[in-house]
């Protein structure tokens, strides 16, 4: 098996080395990848959406459908993990492996995470809100929010955390994010424009350009909510093996 694998790897490597001859030099400003569509985005995105961060503008406005279904993929992945692993009490015959129970509370860890978590969550909201002007946006903010809950679940225990943010709430939140995203799209449709064409939002009193900007912010909020709920629910299911009794 190892020999076949090595052979396949070498063959693929040789093919790719042959193909690399036709690639443009690294850093070429007029490589085919840089020459056709992307100058339009660089020149027009600020004018059309009032968002200086071109990546955010392209992500949530020009490629809005793409991001919407990426969010749906994340939602589906969370549901899949849940259905694969989740065991209710009566179905579980025995624990996979007995682990030593936690003894007492870890004071240093718990105090440190208690100080750290609010800072993380505020920073996540900052990243979400400032995604227009600096690196950041819905995906990053969602992951940081999810990581703050994971930190709490690691330093206290899973049951304490789940008492505050139950599995049902997580599922509802993850669906809510997708609904926010699709809802903004449908709202544009109701206002007489195309799906996810944020220019229709100008009836709320913005100029057309600012309507794009606020539409992007709303959509990013939906992405952040879904990503946060799914990241935490992935941790909950994978780290407890589906029993939801004890995490790492």
């Amino acid at each position: 098996m190892k020999k076949i694998a090595l052979l396949i790897t070498l063959a693929v490597g040789a093919l790719l080395i042959l193909a690399a001859e036709d690639f443009p030099r690294w850093g070429d400003a007029h490589a085919p990848a840089n020459d056709y569509l992307s100058p339009y985005y660089i020149e027009k995105s600020l004018e059309e959406t009032a968002v200086p961060n071109i990546v955010t503008a392209v992500l949530a406005d020009y490629r809005g459908y793409d991001t919407m279904f990426e969010t749906t993929v994340i939602f589906c992945a969370g549901i899949t993990v849940l259905t694969l692993l989740r065991r209710t009490q009566r179905k579980a015959p025995k624990a996979v492996r007995p682990r030593p129970a936690r003894q007492g509370a870890d004071v240093i860890l718990q105090s440190a995470s208690r100080l750290l978590v609010p800072v993380m969550q505020i920073f996540a909201l900052y990243v979400l809100a400032l995604g227009h002007h600096s690196p950041g946006g819905g995906f990053q903010a969602g992951v940081i929010l999810g990581a703050s809950f994971i930190l709490l679940a690691l330093s206290y225990d899973l049951k304490t955390m789940l008492a505050r943010l139950s599995e049902n709430t997580l599922l509802r939140l993850s669906a809510l994010g997708v609904i926010i995203y699709a809802g903004i799209g449908a709202l544009c449709l109701l206002l007489g424009d195309n799906f996810l064409a944020y220019a229709a939002l100008k009836v709320f009193g913005f100029s057309e350009v600012m309507a794009h900007s606020h539409g992007i912010l709303g959509v990013e909020l939906g992405v952040a909510v879904t990503v946060m709920a799914i990241m935490f629910s992935l941790y909950v299911d994978l780290a407890s093996g589906g029993d939801l009794d004890e995490g790492l």
């Binding site: 840089n34 692993l85 992935l234 994978l238």
Partner: peptide, 27 residues
């Protein structure tokens, strides 16, 4: 060029959710 960044940004986040599914199948 911002376009590859946009495509790969979503690919990373979708990558972690497929990693989650793979690990669930593994368990």
């Amino acid at each position: 060029n911002p376009l590859p960044h946009v495509l790969m940004l979503t690919a990373i986040v979708v990558g972690v959710s497929t990693l989650g599914v793979a690990l669930a199948v593994l368990q």
